[in-house]
């Protein structure tokens, strides 16, 4: 080893290393923050889908969850949901109880007697189709992507099933299909939109608590709903820019 120590000293090592590190920094400065978000809202007047859910109108019937499973051939076992309903109960002792038995499909029970309840409500959950979706950002092969209409989709013939997007979704909206070995998630019933049909969950809601539509069109039902109601999104602090807006969202909901 080490025949010519004179040629390479520790100083050389530091020089080489810092040159290398400097190069990396330089390259990233040339192109600042460019590759961070996987999706970019397309320019122009195309559709840009968004969803609004009115918690005041939700009766927790879970028809949305049921029809979604049928329409999209989702496994019947209670571990795979594109769409589910949660029941929040906050007691007079400020205890927060959340439940979602089989995603709400099996019906809900109140865990505490009515006189002990401070407030209680249902929260339907589904993919937020985030504008800066963390799930499409981390997909190593580009099998998870945001369509030009702002719908987060999975190319199941290309997905390798690594599960990285499942980890990256803060809302728990993705799962690995145990038979196909690929990831599966809400498509906003992309196949129905093309036929001019409403997504199955929107169609199934008996109280019209769920609205979807084009956020680019400021006169669309969803845009007007968001304008007229005081809406909030889930986990805003993560800057995923969800396009699912909740009316009357309590701060206990994560």
């Amino acid at each position: 080893m080490a025949i010519e120590k004179k040629n390479f000293s520790r100083r050389d090592f530091i020089k080489h290393t810092s040159m290398f590190a400097g190069g990396v920094v330089f390259v990233s400065l040339m192109n600042p923050m460019k590759v961070v978000y996987a999706t970019k809202k397309p320019e122009g007047k195309g559709k840009w889908y968004g969803i609004a859910i009115d918690i005041e109108k939700c009766i927790g019937c879970a028809n949305c969850a049921r029809t979604c499973k049928i329409e999209n051939d989702v496994h019947k076992e209670p571990f795979f949901f594109r769409n589910w309903v949660e029941q929040y109960t906050i007691t007079n002792d400020d205890e927060i109880l959340v439940s979602s038995p089989n995603g709400g499909i099996d019906g809900f029970e109140q865990p505490v007697p009515e006189e002990d309840i401070y407030k209680t409500f249902f929260v339907p959950k589904m993919c937020n189709h985030c504008a800066k979706s963390p799930c499409t950002q981390v997909c190593p092969v580009g099998a998870s992507f945001e369509s030009p209409e702002g719908v987060a989709l999975v190319d199941q013939t290309y997905c390798i099933g690594c599960g990285y997007c499942v980890q990256a979704c803060p809302y728990g909206c993705r799962y690995i299909d145990p038979e196909k070995g690929v990831v599966d998630k809400c498509t906003l019933c992309y196949h129905r939109l093309k036929d001019g049909l409403d997504p199955a969950c929107m169609m199934a809601c008996p109280t019209h608590a769920r609205i979807y539509g084009d956020l680019n069109d400021k006169e669309s039902e969803v845009s007007l709903f968001i304008k007229e109601h005081n809406c909030a999104v889930l986990k805003q602090q993560l800057n995923t820019v969800p396009k699912l807006y909740y009316n009357a969202l309590s701060q206990e909901v994560h």
Partner: peptide
């Protein structure tokens, strides 16, 4: 590399058609 790669972005453009091709079950 698949044919329709980068048609719209870094993914298979044809996937959009394939996903949309599924037959709706609820008819309205």
């Amino acid at each position: 590399t698949p044919d329709s790669w980068r048609e719209y972005g870094p993914y298979r453009g044809k996937a959009l058609i394939e996903i949309a091709d599924k037959v709706p079950k609820y008819v309205d």
